[in-house]
Simulated scan of single mutants.
Amino acid sequence: MKPFGLGLNKTSTKTLGVCLQHFGYKHTTYNLDDLRTFSQGNLNHLLDKIKQYDSCEDWPWALMYEFLDKQFPEAQFILTKRKTPDIWFESLCKHADRTGPTEARRLVYGYEMPHDYRQHHIDFYNAHNQKVVDYFKDRADKLLVVCWENGDGWRELCQFLKQPQPNMPFPHINKARTASPNLTS
């Protein structure tokens, strides 16, 4: 069984990746070359790559869940979300402030920097999450939707993946310490 993370970037995908690696999965995450390959529609090349791994999260994997579901019928899918779309957008902007314009954001969202395109990004986030939920609506056992900010953690993840619960605190990777003002208004 391969677990695939379907959350967009800045939805605690790195936390999910650390959890999956803790369980012993050979894991892959965001890769710009893979995102370029996805953007060009070369899914077979990506299929060859993902066969080398037990789990994945972030781009491009979160964007190709229908293809992955068809290729790996035994797979499980985990949608990581933020408490609100506004919190997600704020995190996206803070990350953009640190990294500057990126090709990856342009390929996924259409813009290298999110700040001036709030509604576009919020709509993209909401639509992605809804499409994932709708896609798996008749197979609820294939999809786990989690929000670490709401208290989801080891219990939900372990039950879903049928893994023993670790005797350690749940990791929160890249957790922001403070919020940036005025990004959600």
Rank of each mutant, 00 (worst) to 15 (best):
T15C: 05
L92F: 14
Q52F: 00
D86Q: 08
T15I: 06
S12Y: 07
P164I: 02
L161S: 08
L32R: 12
T84E: 00
Q52M: 04
L92N: 13
R106F: 06
V132I: 08
Q71S: 08
Y109E: 00
L107W: 10
F4A: 10
D34H: 15
F23W: 12
C56F: 02
Q165T: 12
N31Q: 15
A75H: 13
E66L: 04
Q119L: 08
N150K: 10
A176V: 15
D141Q: 09
H121R: 06
E74G: 06
K162E: 15
L8I: 13
P164M: 02
F77I: 06
L143W: 05
Y53N: 04
C93E: 03
D116A: 11
P181I: 02
D97E: 07
K162A: 07
G153F: 03
F4H: 03
T29G: 10
G100H: 09
A127Q: 10
R118L: 04
E90G: 08
D33K: 15
F136P: 12
V133P: 02
I87G: 00
S39E: 09
I78A: 05
D138S: 13
P3Q: 03
S91T: 10
Q52G: 07
P73M: 03
P169F: 00
D141N: 14
L47N: 07
D34I: 08
K175M: 11
T102M: 10
K49Y: 08
I173F: 11
W154M: 03
D134N: 15
A75D: 11
Q40M: 13
G24E: 03
L144W: 06
K175C: 03
D152R: 00
K162S: 14
H120W: 04
K83R: 10
I87L: 10
C158W: 01
G110H: 06
R177N: 07
E90M: 15
V132R: 05
W59D: 01
N44G: 03
L144G: 07
V146T: 11
E149H: 02
A176N: 12
F160C: 04
M64E: 02
E156S: 09
M113N: 12
D34V: 05
H128R: 09
C93H: 01
Q71D: 00
Q159A: 12
L79R: 00
R155W: 00
W59S: 03
F77R: 08
P85L: 00
C147E: 00
D138K: 14
L20C: 13
G5R: 06
S185L: 13
F77V: 07
Y111F: 13
Y65N: 02
P114T: 02
N31I: 08
A75C: 15
F72D: 04
P164A: 07
K51S: 05
T102F: 01
L16M: 11
A62M: 08
L35T: 10
D134E: 14
C93Q: 01
A140F: 06
Q163D: 03
C158K: 04
H115I: 09
K51L: 09
Q71M: 04
N42E: 12
D116W: 13
P181V: 09
